[in-house]
């Protein structure tokens, strides 16, 4: 029998994978990938909680998270394109030009 804890552990596991990715990646695009994993992990947790408590709020939160992710992609990719045009690469280290 699969319980809520199973789903929560899975979500936590995926979230940790995403955290590892965020720590590790230097490339801006790959960093975005890791954040998408984190959002998805949370979505699983929300859907599972929604099912096991018989409450639709969790699913609705998942919808809103998906909407946030979609808008994040639009804006993030636009910024990324601008940065690429200016610098010719999308390394995170090159974003430090404002540092004194």
């Amino acid at each position: 029998m699969i319980t809520l804890t199973h789903y929560l552990v899975l979500a936590a596991l995926l979230f940790c994978i995403a955290l590892v990715g965020i720590m590790r990646r230097k490339n801006l695009l790959m960093l975005f990938f890791a954040t998408e994993i984190a959002l998805n992990a949370v979505n699983i947790a929300f859907a599972a909680i929604s099912k096991y408590y018989g409450d639709l709020t969790g699913q609705l939160f998942a919808f809103f998270i998906i909407a946030v992710a979609a808008s994040e992609v639009a804006v993030g990719l636009g910024l990324l394109i601008i940065w690429y045009k200016r610098r010719g690469n999308i390394d995170l280290d090159s974003l430090q030009s404002m540092k004194g």
Partner: peptide, 11 residues
């Protein structure tokens, strides 16, 4: 909508 406009303008 805001994200869409922002994306278009940025890109």
């Amino acid at each position: 909508l805001v994200a869409m406009i922002a994306g278009i303008i940025l890109a």
